[in-house]
Design a binder for these strands. Structure first.
Lengths: 343, 343
DNA sequence: TTGAAAGCGCTAACAA
DNA sequence: TTGTTAGCGCTTTCAA
């Protein structure tokens, strides 16, 4: 906070370089026609003055802010962080910048956040999930910009979708567990409608269990999201008190699954001998812990990348196509030692 | 992307409500003097038109964008995520919004990012660490806004500092390990100057070891940051080949420490019997894994909160004080079973 | 290839 | 309490 004098503007640079402001403006755009020599002179003048372009003013004038608004449930989550990376990387080559906010898994908070973000006139907006408050949905519909719903496959999408079936992810795991001979299978977490994705995973669990004619009532609550490792551990403890003969547990996330694994270690329950454990999210921990935990990879980074791609397509395409596209990713089952009997 | 017609402006709302644009502007500011009835009428009119304020235009005019720029090394890191949470929460009550970017632990990337962020005319900027490229430092110095350097205590700070001594964090751990009777202590990670904080932690290790007259040469490289759990595991494996009699290892982060712990489990090395393991960062995993891992809590959330507080103070304080303040947090040693011999 | 004029949507400053 | 005027710093559009 040294020099507190007013920041130089284009007019200042123009004066310094002996050209008109408009020429300075052109010199800073990669495309525009400017004599190579004058451009050099202008850039030098700008450098001398320590000029930094005001992209807010630029955006106001050109009606292109260069922002893409993104909302995620939590910043402290490796899965969403990967999606953000994919978005950022996919977008930055096109001069677009992510404007990020988090909702704390709260739809009212999402509404507040979306309202705030739209105020910045983003050129597109990416939201997590397909469930929103009515007002939020209305805002998104009327924003007049591309809207991408991710991490889910809404029945009634607002615009574009880049997601996967959370229910199917659970189904894959249940089928795998059954194939290893387990039938007394429990679900841990996903008990609140706040985390619609976790809720969907639990629904996928019960549905698949029922289809296979198995008992789908072993549902252990673990509280509102995000479920911590500790909550996963506590939930497993309660689970074993209630249904001591449980042979396998499907957890709403790898973090909960790891907590459950540690609880088994503390309780002296052999994994996978006595108990199989599976998670969700392909977090690094499930790959490296002992034993490694079976998980499902939803391809978080890809979700971000494909969303970015979609946005770029929509923004560059002049034809005002109303085709609401739907990109569905296939979750990948990662079978690991926590569910495999090596007998 | 339904209604693609032009978004309503204040002028539209003013017309709809039968007042002047200026009155609409006032109606949207919480402080300004507006008749309660006219305000209601205006808000109703805005609602009817689906009006959303353009805070870019507002910022241009008022010279207050409401942005606070923040750079962190990585989004996918629970520690930095906590700092972001602290910042966001501390700032939002004052109508300030975090504009986030990540540098991938790369100073050139930081420079690029800072340049881009300054373009948005933030009212303050928060950066991680005290090491920057010369150009980046110059930009920060000339930005004319409060600059907060965090997560470190630079010798020559740009402006304000909210940090802690990474070297001291290591010192605390070394002293603790020595107090438990270990002398053959190694350090894992922090071998690259890219991660200045990790580097400082390693320096703190060697310095403390030397002060205690112990061998400070057992330094195991783990590659450029971020160090994954897997890299921690691999590094421990190499460490044991090179110095099989090592009794304790100080890891650059809890993630590396957990990786090391799992490797010990795979190698059949008893922790803490044969080997003590300590980490850094107070990640949840180190609290819940078996055995739990001794760590140091740098109070990440507090760093964010205090930075936010400092920014608010600086922005509200009209006196143009040049006092570069320095807030130093005390890391907290969390002694856990991974280093404690229960004999 | 460059410049001049007008205005993006809003608010500061003043006047009523 | 409300309105008027004049920009904020840039780009669009048109003319040179």
């Amino acid at each position: 906070m040294k020099s507190s004098r007013k920041a130089p503007t284009m007019a200042d640079v123009a004066r310094e370089a002996g050209v008109s402001p408009m020429t300075v403006s052109r010199a800073f755009k990669s495309d525009a026609y400017v004599n190579e020599e004058t451009r050099k002179a202008i850039l030098a003048a700008a450098e001398r003055l320590g000029y930094v372009m005001d992209s807010m003013a630029s955006g106001l004038s050109s009606r292109k802010t260069g922002f893409v608004a993104v909302t995620i449930p939590s910043v402290n989550n490796a899965n969403f962080a990967d999606t953000i990376r994919g978005l950022t990387e996919g977008l930055q080559n096109n001069g677009l910048q992510v404007l990020l906010g988090y909702t704390s898994y709260n739809l009212e908070e999402e509404e507040r956040l979306v309202r705030q973000l739209l105020t910045r006139r983003p050129e597109a907006i990416v939201v997590t999930g397909g469930k929103h408050t009515d007002k939020c949905r209305a805002m998104l519909e009327n924003a007049g910009i591309p809207v991408i719903e991710t991490w889910d496959i809404p029945n009634n999408p607002i615009d574009s979708v880049v997601g996967f079936s959370n229910a199917e992810a659970s189904a894959m795991i249940v089928q795998h567990l059954v194939s290893t001979g387990r039938t007394k299978i429990a679900f841990l977490g996903g008990d609140t409608s706040r985390d619609t994705r976790g809720f969907d995973r639990r629904r996928g669990f019960t549905r698949t269990m029922e289809q296979l004619g198995l008992d789908a009532t072993r549902l252990t609550e673990a509280g509102p999201p995000p479920i911590s490792m500790r909550e996963g551990a506590d939930a497993l403890s309660r689970l074993m008190q209630k249904w001591p003969d449980t042979e396998a547990v499907v957890c709403v996330s790898d973090l909960a699954a790891f907590g459950a694994l540690t609880e088994c270690q503390r309780l002296g329950i052999d994994v996978p001998g006595k108990m199989a454990i599976a998670g969700f999210g392909a977090y690094e921990i499930s790959d490296i812990c002992v034993p490694p935990i079976t998980s499902v990879d939803p391809h978080c980074y890809q979700i971000g990348m494909l969303s970015a791609q979609r946005i770029i397509d929509l923004l560059s395409d002049t034809t005002d196509e109303t085709t609401t596209s739907r990109t569905v990713l296939e979750p990948e089952l990662l079978i690991r030692a926590s569910t495999v009997l090596t007998s």
